[in-house]
């Protein structure tokens, strides 16, 4: 049993469990699944500014900040208590593609060549962490949703706007992966 928990979970277990977040939030609190709105609530709660976008009662959205706090705690539990410490096993063709880009450390969830503090102020580290993070925040707010709010909740509601957003996610992701990323790492 412990072995089953500590091994990586296959998609046919993890996917349906993520899908169950949708009815869990609806049944427990009549809330719609979504994570990226928390970035807005953090700004509204913590950063003094004059923009209309942040003039609302963020306290009424406290539940979603608590949800995000739970995700942080869950990340800690999953990594500290439920991990078998083995290397992540990804497709051999991805491994060789990434090795051509100079990535050779596959021992954690992220390539340590890019995600380390010495690298943060280098061009590649700055682009990945600072620009990448900025685009995630700006883009999800402009699109009014992220992978959870649009891809999972939105597509579950058969919402055409969410499908358009998800197509946008893939256009951007493919462009970055195949055209821009090889130039910057």
């Amino acid at each position: 049993m412990i072995d089953l928990l500590t091994k990586p979970w296959p998609w046919h277990i993890a996917g349906p469990l993520i899908g169950l977040m949708v009815p869990a939030l609806l049944l427990v609190g009549n809330k719609q699944f979504g994570i990226s709105s928390t970035l807005r609530h953090v700004c509204a709660a913590c950063i003094p500014n004059k923009a209309d976008y942040f003039k609302y009662d963020w306290k009424s959205k406290l539940w979603s900040l608590v949800l995000a706090l739970g995700v942080i705690v869950g990340g800690w539990i999953g990594t500290q208590a439920l991990s078998n410490g083995e290397n992540i096993i990804i497709s051999t063709s991805t491994v060789s593609d990434l090795q051509e880009l100079g990535i050779n450390d596959f021992s954690s969830m992220l390539p340590t060549e890019i995600f380390n503090w010495e690298n943060v102020l280098s061009t590649s580290g700055f682009l990945v962490l600072v620009l990448g993070g900025f685009l995630v925040g700006f883009g999800t707010r402009y699109a009014n949703g992220c992978t959870s709010g649009h891809a999972i909740m939105g597509l579950s509601l058969l919402n055409i706007g969410s499908l358009a957003a998800v197509i946008g996610f893939f256009i951007g992701g493919l462009l970055m992966t195949h055209v821009i990323l090889p130039l910057i790492i």
Partner: peptide, 15 residues
Amino acid sequence: NVAGGILFGLGWALT
């Protein structure tokens, strides 16, 4: 949705 989606996609593949 589309422009924001593309910008987020760029960031998703970076980070």
